[in-house]
Every structure is written in structure tokens, then in C-alpha cells.
Amino acid sequence: MRAFTQHKGLVAPMDRSNVDTDMIIPKQFLKSIKRTGFGPNLFDALRYLDEGQPDQDSSKRPLNPDFVLNQPRYRNASVLLARSNFGCGSSREHAPWALDDYGFRVIIAPSFADIFYNNCFKNGLLPIVLEEKIVDKLFQDAEALEGYQLTVDLEAKTVITPAGESFGFEVDDFRRHCLLNGLDDIGVTLEDAELIKTYEDQRRQTAPWLFDAGQ
């Protein structure tokens, strides 16, 4: 996995709460058996005026001029500023894959849905929870100032504004460790293979029905 230490990037404000994973990447694109190539269909139904189809050249489709990411000033944004309960709905990891493929590295919101939040960390994407009033302020600034950028420091757990203000955020130590070092967490877990085997052997004694089901 790609490591994440520090990132400075253009902020795109998406002023809408409860953005669900169907909105982030509609189901017709989940038919792919790959992890890449979802970027052109990120927010597909909001971003284009027509209905998107897999394997279509999206560069020729009519854009919705009202959608935030279609505004020239937010082109190449890599920090998504969002509202509460971002990523609610399904467990599809295609949602973080699409955000990542589009070019986002950080998502800042007052709250995230649990499964989406977890999926981001598996893909080098950093979801940051900040207090609602701080997010409100960032929305105002990002909308008021063209070219507004934020710096995110995962080591220091801070978000720094162009004016030099710094906001701290919380992140689990294990997730932070994996992200900072770009670790494959399967590899980390397999370091405990003996413990897993010991647990399994004990469980086989105490709950044998879990091991010979259907046989």
C-alpha cells in the first residue's frame, strides 16, 4: 500500500450531508473485477448529465456545470471537504478506489460511516474527522478563496490552513502506523500466525461444531 505521511493539496468543498456510496460510485461500475479505473465515474450521477455505463469514454459525456468538481477552480483537487455521515451505505471498496483513482488523498468531514472510514485506510486514503464548526470554517474559506490549499500531516496529526492555523485530529494508532509506513496489514497479521493457530486449536475443542459444519 502507498504510504501517507504529509500531503498538501487543493480543497474541493462538497456541501451535502449523507453522501452515500451509491452516489460515490454507482452500481453499474461495480461489475469490474479490477481495483483501478473508477476515477472517471466518481460521483457519476452528479457529475454528468447522462447515465453512465461501464467501459464508456467519459471524456465525451455532458458535464453537469453545477457540480462542484466540474468547476475549473477545483480541477486537480486532492482534498475533499465533506459534510456529516460521508460514505454511508454499502461496504463497496470501489468508493475509496474511485476517490483515490480520481486523485483525492484526504477527505475531511465531521463524521464518516464506519465501513467506508475503515476502507479508506486500506487504500492510502486518509479520512479526517474534524469538529463541525471547524469544518464550517473550512467550507467558508475554501469557497471564498480560490486556490485554497490545506496541508495534512499524519505524523503530527494536524491539518494546517494557508493562514497557519493548525487543527489536531484523532486517528487509531494501528491505522496510522500502517498508513505512515505503507504496510500490508495481512503481512502484519501473519506475524501472529502461531497465535491464530493456538486460538483455533482451543476453539476446535470448545466449539467443535464450528469446524466440521456441513460434513
Partner: peptide
């Protein structure tokens, strides 16, 4: 529910 990376895990 889990994501695909966790399915692999």
C-alpha cells in the same frame, strides 16, 4: 460487512 481488502485479509 467488510470491504474487499478485508475479504482478502
Amino acid at each position: 460487512g467488510i470491504g474487499t481488502s478485508e475479504v482478502e485479509h
